[in-house]
């Protein structure tokens, strides 16, 4: 059946497409299975009135970027430059920008 190179190539292509299909099925299955977990997290956020995700814990403004002020990263000393590494991975929240978006 796969004696011709073209047959082998189309079979390989078919396998790739089937795997992509499985990806879609797996994603849908996982979304369904994870719904109670996501809902649970949402309920926790609502119950405790949380404003931020726990992504970084090294600095106050990185733990709660939403509640940070523009001067927060510098407030330990007026001339100190921000030195926490997570600062490079967190942009300034849009509402704290030079022209805050509201």
């Amino acid at each position: 059946m796969f004696e011709r190179k073209s047959h082998r190539f189309f079979a390989w292509l078919g396998v790739g497409l089937v795997l992509m299909g499985f990806m879609g099925i797996h994603a849908a299955y996982r979304r369904n299975a994870d719904t109670p977990m996501l809902r649970g997290k949402g309920q926790m956020v609502r119950r405790l009135a949380l404003t931020d995700l726990c992504l970084f814990t090294d600095a106050r403004y990185a733990r709660n970027p939403v509640l940070a002020d523009l001067n927060t990263p510098f407030q330990d000393c007026p001339l100190s430059l921000e030195h926490f590494p997570s600062g490079s991975l967190l942009p300034v929240p849009p509402h704290l920008g030079v022209h805050p978006a509201r």
Binding site: H26, L55, F56, T57, D58, P85
Partner: peptide, 19 residues
Amino acid sequence: PVLKGWSVLYPDFRLTPFI
């Protein structure tokens, strides 16, 4: 390494696939 940073407590979470 890029996502973890230096946070000692960084959450070890599993993502739900949204394609």
